[in-house]
């Protein structure tokens, strides 16, 4: 389990007595791009929350970047981008610069103070993502696409080894969505960042991911994307046209 970016064994998790995940076992190697998909209520978001420590599992083992999750403290090595902010307030008085800077807190111990190296990291990330020109803008004034880009910058400001994305483009138009995924793909290829992408969109997984995890409370398939395309699981899930719908790499 030590060499993997993420390793999960016999995971069981749920809420208030109901079971969201059972006997989930899989691992992700460093540098992989894993697409996680499955029907509504299949436990995709629960899996993400368990990985990030937001939900306590009922049983099972989780190893993050070689460390058991319960003792994992180096959150700067992990970037997280949710579908949207939990209770986003469009009038929240934070600038783009302030929001991205918040991402640097995960690398700090008490009392968390920002220094010159944090300013430089924020500048570098904004320049790389092409959002330097909006640094002084308020987060609530931005379009959905730009706001997600800023939150992605927040997730990337520590140059994480593992990036977790939970349905990050749900509210975006197709064009913005495409440029967003290209950016993630670039990061995976150029920086070797391990990517975990939760999405309903199997076509996106087909286009960018190297591996696929199909979840329906338990693991239905986990492995190489091309292997999935030739598997009986794929035909069982998507029918005889599945090859064209899911596996056609554009």
């Amino acid at each position: 389990m030590n060499g993997a970016a993420l390793a999960i064994r016999n995971l069981r998790a749920g809420y208030h007595g109901s079971e969201a995940l059972r006997d989930v076992t899989f691992s992700v190697s460093r540098g992989d791009y894993l697409g996680i998909c499955g029907p509504n209520g299949s436990g995709k978001s629960t899996l993400v929350k368990v990985i990030l420590g937001l939900v306590t599992p009922q049983s099972g083992e989780i190893s993050l970047l070689g460390t058991p999750r319960d003792s994992f403290k180096e959150w700067r090595r992990i970037g997280y981008l949710p579908q949207g902010l939990q209770f986003f307030n469009p009038h929240f008085p934070a600038t783009v610069d302030e929001v991205i800077r918040l991402g640097r807190l995960s690398g700090k111990s008490f009392p968390r103070r920002f220094g010159r190296e944090d300013t430089l990291a924020v500048e570098r990330t904004m320049d790389w993502m092409g959002i330097g020109h909006i640094r002084g803008r308020m987060i609530g004034e931005l379009s959905g696409g730009l706001r997600q880009r800023v939150l992605l910058a927040r997730a990337l400001v520590n140059e994480p080894e593992l990036l977790v994305l939970d349905e990050p483009t749900t509210a975006l138009d197709p064009e913005t969505r495409e440029s967003f995924y290209k950016l993630i793909y670039e990061m995976n290829r150029e920086r070797g960042t391990t990517v975990l992408l939760v999405t309903h969109d199997t076509a996106t997984i087909g286009k960018y991911a190297t591996h696929l995890l199909y979840l329906d409370k338990k693991v239905i398939f986990c492995g190489d994307f091309d292997d999935f395309c030739n598997s009986s699981e794929m035909t069982g899930l998507f029918g005889e046209h599945g090859q064209h719908l899911v596996c056609h790499r554009h």
Binding site: L52, Y80, P82, L85, Q86, L102, L105, S106, P111
Partner: peptide, 20 residues
């Protein structure tokens, strides 16, 4: 002392948790 933690938790509690 807790300014940055308070700011992060106020902005989004879930994101703050994932920052440790």
């Amino acid at each position: 002392i807790f300014y940055n933690d308070l700011f992060a938790s106020t902005f989004d509690e879930e994101l703050a948790k994932t920052s440790g």
